[in-house]
């Protein structure tokens, strides 16, 4: 469903010169699977997902969604993904209903289908109380619901969540996670990026630990725990990062290097 091969993205920085935000990253995600991208802030998660959503162009490497290349067929890719992140805001001067309806139309849904989808979405996400509230007047939780509804209004086979729970209180975060879980149950192919271990443990079928633009380890959680003899996810995460940093700065700790795809 999603296939990422040797994806690299660099940019020019005044202070640091040429910086690789993504460094030869490869992974694949299947339908009905939640793939977790776990990494600290600035690891390259957002850059990777932005390339998948065709908003950024890769410096090299390829990425395909449902068989469509993100560079050569961006329109087809955008039609098949739902993307939600903390950066995808909602309009202040539009009501919840108008917002979701607007995107439904942009995705080319027919009016009857759109009406059906809207009714069902507002029902399942319990958004009917505030369907006529302007974006500016909504609480963070309401906004997040609208964002999710907006991302899945066209019923895409692939859904990308980029830190969907950042800045949310536990109650709202829990509801968001429940929604992600139910989408998985519908057979969607989901990428879920986060820096919170608990969410990964709870949701993800497979994870990739990403740091400084490179994938340090990839696999199911039990696989990784076994591979690195570390039953605690958090410890595993810090171990991998520390070893990578140590290797970067020159100390000989080579064993993790092989995990890098």
């Amino acid at each position: 469903m999603i296939s990422v091969q040797q994806l690299t993205k660099g940019f020019d920085d005044l202070r640091r010169g040429w910086v690789a935000a993504l460094d030869h990253v490869s992974f694949e995600v299947q339908p009905g699977e939640i793939f977790g991208l776990l990494g600290p802030n600035g690891a390259g998660k957002t850059t990777c997902l932005r390339i998948l959503s065709t908003v950024l162009r890769p410096s090299s490497g390829t990425a395909t969604v449902s068989g469509f290349d993100v560079v050569t067929h961006p329109a087809e890719v955008r039609q098949r993904i739902g993307f939600m992140s903390s950066n995808t805001g909602i309009y202040d001067r539009m009501t919840a209903f108008e917002m979701v309806e607007y995107y439904g139309r942009l995705y080319g849904l027919s009016e009857e289908l759109l009406k059906l989808r809207l009714e069902r979405l507002f029902e399942t996400l319990q958004m009917n109380d505030f369907r006529d509230t302007l974006g500016a007047k909504m609480s963070t939780g309401m906004k997040q619901k609208v964002s999710i509804a907006r991302a899945i209004v066209h019923d895409p086979p692939v859904i990308i969540f980029d830190e969907p729970t950042s800045g949310l209180d536990v109650l709202v975060a829990r509801k968001v996670l429940a929604t992600v879980q139910s989408l998985k149950d519908q057979g969607k192919c989901i990428i879920f990026s986060t820096h919170i271990m608990r969410e990964v443990e709870k949701l993800c079928d497979r994870i990739a630990i990403i740091h400084k633009g490179a994938i340090l380890a990839i696999g199911t959680l039990p696989e990784l725990q076994e591979q690195h003899q570390q039953p605690d996810t958090e410890e595993l995460f810090f171990d991998l990062i520390e070893r990578y940093d140590a290797k970067e700065s020159g100390s000989p700790k080579p064993e993790i290097g092989t995990a890098k795809n």
Binding site: T88, G89, I90, G108
Partner: peptide, 10 residues
């Protein structure tokens, strides 16, 4: 922050 929302639509 609505620019990215718009950019990922078809």
């Amino acid at each position: 922050g609505t620019m990215e929302t718009l950019l990922i639509c078809p």
